[in-house]
Design a protein around this nucleic acid. Sequence first.
DNA 1: GCTATCATCTCATATAATGAGACGTGGCAC
DNA 2: GTGCCACGTCTCATTATATGAGATGATAGC
Lengths: 252, 252
Amino acid sequence: MRRGTPTLTSLSRSLAMLEAVIADGGARSVAAIARDLGVPAATAHRQIHSLVEEGYLARHGRGGHVAGPRLLGLLGRLDEKQVIANAAAPVLHSLAAELGCVIQLGTLEGDMVTYRIKTGQGAGNLFTRVGMQLEAYCSGIGKMLLAHLPEEQQRAYLAGGPFPALTARTITQPEALAQELERIRQQGFALDDHEVADDLFCVAVPIRQDGGRVLAAISITQAGTPVHSTEMLVPRLSAAAAEIEHTAFGRA
Amino acid sequence: MRRGTPTLTSLSRSLAMLEAVIADGGARSVAAIARDLGVPAATAHRQIHSLVEEGYLARHGRGGHVAGPRLLGLLGRLDEKQVIANAAAPVLHSLAAELGCVIQLGTLEGDMVTYRIKTGQGAGNLFTRVGMQLEAYCSGIGKMLLAHLPEEQQRAYLAGGPFPALTARTITQPEALAQELERIRQQGFALDDHEVADDLFCVAVPIRQDGGRVLAAISITQAGTPVHSTEMLVPRLSAAAAEIEHTAFGRA
DNA sequence: GCTATCATCTCATATAATGAGACGTGGCAC
DNA sequence: GTGCCACGTCTCATTATATGAGATGATAGC
């Protein structure tokens, strides 16, 4: 197993077998796959049987195989947005530790923001939890995501109020919200200026795919008197976003 | 490795490791994962290293790991539509063999139908090939998929003509096509009555997710004088569709 | 500068994967 | 009906491969 040597582990053989079975949509017989891969039929049968037992493949009809529940489950967690979350997790963890703030990552599902990552300390009564869904109009992440909705959907959202006030500063008027979204789109970051809770202040920036579609947003939340300025936070967040985008979508 | 014995293969260990790493979004250290899984640190390191070499994981920053390019590639081939194609392949193969016809599965990407499966014999000059993209307005699969577009998009499609005639029977008028789509939606199947080629006749039914969204369609093509009646084909196709839906979306 | 934690490497050992062959089965042609 | 062929399954001796303890190097925290 020296470096550079084309390794020959049982794992690589099994994964190659898995992909070979998946590749043809489950139609070809095991024997045919075995021939293609140049492995003995008995070996191919044993490997595929193991993959079926593991739930990574599932038998279907006569000799066919399709992706199994465990593989689908694994990949389900890796949809586009989850890919971002996976790429983001380590970046956000270290940034949160460095700044001593809570950092969150959220995505828009329908009208609601889903919080997928929450890391760091220092925003005592921030009530969000990973997996929680919140209305979009009042949070930094939510407004950022709304700001980049297709025009059609954004109009529909704005028409779909009401937008109850959570604090005295919550934006409750559709017109004001529309202006705010426009401003957010232009300046590239969103502020939650005590709009969701009286002592919380938050800055959010978008995560983009290939510089285009906004699929997620990340935010830093500070409680009470802010210790970091917006001017300092935006570039830091943007740098983190760039790193996340690169990890999630760049060449591996 | 007797039957029933909780097998302890190196494959299962590696897959468990893969999932453990993915599960936490790549944040936890290898040592932490090793403790959680109760395996020696050296083993965990070696396994993860192998997975990285295989391209199923990728290192990220300090000690973090995220999904690797090969795993993401697997995901790409297994998106929603591809999941259907995988589930459908064995069903369609046997049905095609049984009926002695060509059976195809297609999905709509933009304005074009992508043919993902083509199986069976007996439609000599049917020129489609797997992976080929064709205009939607003239084929059974295409019309079925158009019929279940959101109203907005369907209107846009109909306004986006022209629809060149491929045969004397091709529907070329937007109004006529709109009526045809409405009829298809109501009767639950689509006919291609020599609209795409002079001697081809085809019946198509939809594949639905949870009884709702139409994500794909399957069709039987007959050349020359049909040997099977539409009345006989529709239930057979529908049964196949039901089986595919169950495999793709039902409990595994 | 010291210590604790983590990552990496080596190596003897035991385990698990391998592949040839034999057997059972189903489909198909004649 | 009969024989043939391709496929799936099982066994078993052999060998390759994964394993885990421990030693070493690298890093962060105190």
